[in-house]
Write a protein that binds this DNA or RNA. Sequence first.
DNA 1: CGGCTGATCGTG
DNA 2: ACGATCAGCCGA
Length: 226
Amino acid sequence: MMEKLQDAMEKYVDSPSRLPREFFTRDGITVAKELLGKILVHETELGTIRGIITEVESYMGEEDKGSHTYGGRRTERTEPMYHIGGTSYVYLIYGMYSCMNIACMTDGIPQAVLLRSVVPADEISEKRMQELRLRPINVRQQKKGKEPYTLDKLPASIEKHLADGPGKMCIAMDITRADNDIDMIGSESFYVTEGMEVKAEQIKAGKRIGIDYAEEAADYLWRFYL
DNA sequence: CGGCTGATCGTG
DNA sequence: ACGATCAGCCGA
């Protein structure tokens, strides 16, 4: 596939280092907090897309009632969570959206960080995110017989909420189940790099979203955001 | 801004 | 049957 000149130039001018294995082979809370401000990079059909990570959640293994691995549920779906730190776990939620996590710790310990939100790291990434977000919305517009939206006429749902949720983030960065169970330390097209400096006092904490069934674990402050 | 609803399908 | 969700619509 041809690499666009713009991407080649960006890499030449600015190629921050990729996070190493040791970054991810730590506990899910430490990794979650430290991922804030780092850059998620996906090289797609549209070109390279870079997002600054601004919101994450920790899922803490077989004892965590909020986790897919609660009680030791090791199935075909949850298998990537059991893999070594730095492995992606992308799954389908509500039949139509993807959610992306990065496994932590070593093999056999299913802790992970759910990536919930990013903001574009540069102008070209923002454009590409907008284009990707337009697609499913315009499919619906088409069905309703309405005019499709364009980059010049973005709906409010994209203008104000480009990638601020796990499903929206995956659409904006073209992350699908094709990106599941990938070792992000070695991948040429899907990885995390150093990003902006984040001080401890910039990190806020809150309850995790959408796990009301998790009893006492629903109240743990394992959601972190800038 | 907060609340509500329908959409949609792999998983166990 | 059930979600680690979202867009669009409504009312304040």
